[in-house]
Design a protein around this nucleic acid. Structure first.
Lengths: 354, 354
DNA sequence: AAGCGGAATGTTTACGTAAACATCTCCGGT
DNA sequence: ACCGGAGATGTTTACGTAAACATTCCGCTT
């Protein structure tokens, strides 16, 4: 076997690195006995190549294992066919679904995606990521959750089209996001409509803009209905935090309904309530947010606010491509994607007080 | 301020596309009154530039909003600082955690990641994705689940370093994967050790290699223990499929233990059992596979086989970078990452038959 | 003061590709 | 036989960058 080095070549001969010549158009041209321009024509599928010649060139390509050099093409064309995506904790919930939608939408527009995952959506981390990407080869940038107030703080390269999702940058950069406030309002109104006196809130972290919007809408909706506003429980999006706070909530017999800022915290809360012997929804009603794929298979199946991640991803890419291709400036474009309450089994009427 | 995009242009003037000149080193050089080579030196942080000159060049860069052209650099350097990743259904389960780990590991090695999401891990889809990426600018390729028998079927560009995860391509391409067989064996042995007569299996799709490995190890372990091997239930990884099959399983009173090929199907099974009034683990014990973040917050908390996705991602990138930088050929390198049984509350002794 | 060495900067070149332009060949029409 | 024209192919050039090589300028030694 040619490629087998596991046995003999114990000495790592550095020369082998050079011994692997990546063929260029010129090599193919030489082998096929044509000019490199003809190779280019075959490579790009251009007209005016005799079928016979084309076949010969294709043969030479195959023989040499030629594939076009992306950098050279990008340099020539002036674009990369790639968009950058800065995401925050990819393996978590909605984030990855938005990314998936962006990747898919990008593919449909003929772009690939360069991904950078940042630990926190703080300005510093996002700036560092943007810097790395701008040294990369991208035509535009999608930022999913840039929790910063001004685009200046991001130190983005000018001339680089950018769109953001779920952010405070509206007015500075084109933004696309789900209707957080409407979602929270619907959740709270649904619970009030079931007869609950008030609704508690298991909130996301304070430095998250969607968390803030959901919390504010929760509070506003309660006030508008003339209901008492209990202090919110403050989690960090994780199921673990929902569980820990849930142990406190479970001890509070006055809590009959909880609106959770995301489904994962709701899952943690459910576990805490189960462990405390409080029934869902007979004793406590729960509504989540996000509609993660597993929401329907928690126990009980979780009533939640569904975000249309696919639409968000599509719209993000649309806005970005518009800027890239038309050079349009869309500074104050903002798209709000509607949200939907998915009623399952985790919420019901409040228990009857004896 | 230079980077401020919040400006007036509410009218989308198409001319702005042309009026937006992306500055090059030459422009910076002209403004700073130096040669473009000096700009290059400043840009790359090279030596032999007088502090005063450097400052002047940096000023010119900022004034023009210069940022280096990635394509030109890549062409010059002969590499891209990017690796391609082909993943399958990003928003699902272990996939996204592996991707996250790969992204992180790549960052540590100084690479960004170009992502392509394919619908199915079939040969055709993966080939198409690889083709798209190879036209892109990448130094190497990570394929997560290429369910094909030979690398020839993938039509990968030669000269392109490749590693695969969870695949049948061992012997052809360097591979990294969790110890599927050991995980399944541990799960089954654990259940048998609790006293169950036999263990049923909720399997993954037949065309998936990890699903096959888990199913085979399940069967082998039962046979080795001299236990009857019931026909497996065949799902498609989704919680929905677990739920549908679970409704059948729930009707079968002889089932006391089920080993599920992943956690999501386990979640679906749990819901079906709950709905049928069968208790977990008192009536039916369940063990999953993957240890998704939510596994600890299902009800009951799911006993499952944990894959070390972070290690898999790291090792994939290590192997790839080794090939890229040393030109090493690692055709039959294979790394198997150990697996661990995480005992929670979804499995227990079988019910006592009256 | 001549000469030397090294730092600072400029000039040339190549990376691989494809558009633009140039050339060449072959065909039919007159 | 000649010419127009179109298809096929070759040649030149530019994309933006940075290495390699060349030059200038300075201060210091002898």
């Amino acid at each position: 076997m040619v490629g087998d080095r596991s046995g003999a070549a114990s000495v790592a001969d550095v020369t082998s690195a050079k011994a692997r010549p990546v063929p260029s158009m010129a090599d193919v041209a030489a082998l096929a006995g044509v000019s490199s321009q003809t190779v280019s024509r075959v490579s790009t599928g251009a007209d005016h190549v005799k079928p016979e010649t084309r076949a010969r060139v294709l043969g030479a390509m195959k023989a040499l294992g030629y594939s076009p050099n992306g950098a050279a093409r990008a340099l020539r064309y002036g674009n990369f066919g790639a968009i950058g995506v800065i995401a925050h904790r990819l393996a978590r919930t909605g984030e990855s679904r938005t990314v998936e939608a962006v990747v898919e939408a990008a593919r449909l527009h003929g772009y690939t995606v360069s991904l950078v995952d940042v630990r926190s959506p703080s300005s510093d981390d996002v700036t560092a990521a943007a810097a790395r990407l701008s040294h990369q080869a991208i035509d535009g940038l999608v930022i999913i959750r840039a929790e910063t107030e001004t685009p200046a703080a991001l130190a983005l390269p000018p001339h680089l089209p950018v769109v953001v999702s779920d952010s405070r940058l509206f007015g500075h950069l084109p933004a696309v996001g789900a209707d957080q406030s409407d979602g929270a309002r619907r959740a709270v109104q649904y619970l009030l409509g079931l007869g609950h006196t008030t609704v508690h809130h298991l909130a996301g972290p304070e430095d998250s803009s969607p968390a803030q919007m959901r919390a504010e809408a929760w509070e506003t909706t309660l006030r508008d209905a003339g209901r008492p506003v209990p202090p919110p429980y403050r989690g960090d999006w994780s199921a673990e935090s929902g569980y820990q706070l849930g142990r406190t909530i479970a001890e509070n017999a006055t809590v009959t309904a909880v609106f959770c800022a995301n489904d994962e915290m709701a899952a943690g809360l459910c576990r805490a309530l189960h462990e405390a012997g409080r029934r869902i929804p007979e004793d406590v009603s729960i509504v989540g947010f996000d509609n993660i794929p597993l929401a329907d298979f928690l126990w009980p199946p979780l009533t939640t606010v569904a975000q249309d991640f696919a639409s968000i991803g599509n719209r993000l890419v649309e806005l970005l491509v518009e800027q890239i291709q038309d050079g349009a400036e869309l500074a104050d474009s903002r798209t709000i994607i509607p949200v939907e309450l998915v009623v399952r089994a985790s919420a019901g009427p409040p228990p009857v007080r004896p």
